[in-house]
Nucleic acid binder design. Structure first.
Length: 217
DNA sequence: TCAACGATTTTCT
DNA sequence: GAAAATCGTTGAG
């Protein structure tokens, strides 16, 4: 596919590939996939509208031995998706009002995934604003904050369980992850995961450092 | 059947 | 910084 200019970094002549990431990308250790997902492009097409964003924050959930992973309770109706093939979407409902989207990793039968916690809006900003605005009473949402949280990004991208749970990120038509431009090590920060009560200290969160005019740190 | 809680976000004090 | 909004999943009774 033809590369496009990165609209989110006008200064850099960085090119982003729109080729879809292959299944083998996801069939690796979850930490590796979580790190490698930074800089890639999340794309969602719904109702003839396509929105895209650069993945800027991820977390790894390792499997049944990870106390913070949903699969810690074993295989249930809810967690069955985590045991699915690599490169599928695991979408769950949280706090009675938000959806969160994960990319399932490792071989089928191994319940692990990467939570996509944030993206930098790239295409379809107007549609993201529309979707997000419908949920708020107050002021306008700044562009950089349109999808900088797991719940927010699902609202902005129109992602929900009934539509996207189990979706194929590789061969599907609605939710995909494109190659983009992988992040350099100097642009990546590793921290503990957010908002969990178990295994709090495990360093399994990867964040893209804030972008400045000179593309710097 | 029931109560507690959660991989969150927003608003109010 | 605290609390509300809001409901499916889980585990105990």
């Amino acid at each position: 596919m033809v590369p496009i200019e990165n609209a989110a970094s006008p200064s850099g002549a960085r090119r982003l590939s729109l080729r879809v990431l292959p299944r083998t990308f996801y069939d690796r250790d979850t930490e590796v996939v979580a790190r490698d997902l930074l800089g890639r492009i999340l794309e969602c097409t719904r109702g003839g509208v396509t929105v895209r964003g650069i993945i800027s924050e991820t977390e790894a959930y390792l499997g049944e031995h990870d106390p913070a992973c949903h699969a810690a309770v074993g295989r249930t109706r809810r967690t069955a998706g985590l045991y699915g093939p690599p490169g599928t979407a695991y979408v769950y409902f949280i706090y009675g009002m938000y959806w969160c989207v994960n990319a399932v990793t490792r071989a089928e039968g191994l319940p692990s995934a990467v939570l996509i916690r944030g993206v930098r809006p790239l295409d379809g900003l107007e549609d993201m604003r529309k979707r997000r605005h419908g949920r708020r009473r107050g002021a306008e949402v700044a562009d950089h904050a349109l999808a900088d949280g797991p719940g927010k990004l699902c609202v902005a991208f129109g992602i929900d369980g009934p539509t996207h749970h189990g979706a194929d990120l590789v061969r599907g038509a609605t939710l995909r992850i494109l190659r983009g431009a992988p992040a350099a090590d100097a642009d990546v920060r590793v921290t503990a995961r957010i908002g969990i009560s178990k295994a709090k200290e495990w360093p399994l969160r990867w964040v893209l450092k804030r972008q400045t005019a000179d593309g710097g740190r």
